[in-house]
Computed example of a mutant assay.
Amino acid sequence: MNSTMNLLLRAAIAAAASDREKFVDKVSSLIEEKAGTSPETAENIAGGIDRLVDMLDQRLFFEQLTGSGGADTAALEKKIDRLTEAIDKLNANLEKIAGK
């Protein structure tokens, strides 16, 4: 991932997570609404997503500091693609559940 893309992704993460409480509330309400789960379960899942976003941001920051990313870029992009695929599948399942 080139440094410009790294910086843009980190900026987007920072903007989305600038108000963590609001982020967790919004994500948990979406999960609760789509999956029909309890508010506590939805909040736990949203908290996990928040922690994953933090981990991604830290990884990107480390790569930016070390200038690494040449060899690891392909592996990271593959992981991001797999994560995106998993999120798409989760959204499809949530939509099926909501449609019942």
Rank of each mutant, 00 (worst) to 15 (best):
A98E: 02
D19T: 00
A75T: 14
S38A: 01
E43S: 13
I31D: 02
A74H: 12
K34D: 10
E33N: 09
A14G: 06
V53R: 04
A15T: 12
L52P: 01
E43C: 05
T66W: 03
K96N: 09
I87E: 05
T66K: 08
L30G: 10
T73A: 15
K26E: 14
A71W: 11
I45E: 05
R59H: 07
L7A: 14
A92V: 03
E21T: 14
K34T: 11
A11L: 12
A12T: 11
A35L: 15
A71R: 12
E95V: 07
F62M: 08
F23V: 01
A15I: 06
L94M: 04
K89R: 12
L90E: 05
E21S: 10
M5H: 12
D19P: 00
I97H: 09
I80K: 10
A71L: 15
K34Y: 09
V24L: 01
K26C: 02
D88A: 07
I87V: 14
T84M: 06
G99S: 13
E40P: 03
Q58A: 14
A15W: 07
L83P: 04
G70A: 12
G69V: 06
D54V: 00
I45R: 04
G69Q: 09
V24D: 00
S28F: 00
I31Y: 01
L90Y: 11
S18N: 05
F62W: 08
V27H: 00
D25V: 02
I45M: 12
L9F: 06
N2V: 06
G36V: 08
S3C: 07
E33I: 03
E63F: 04
T73E: 15
T66I: 07
G47Q: 02
K34V: 04
I49G: 03
T4E: 15
Q64G: 11
L83G: 11
E63V: 03
L76A: 09
G99E: 12
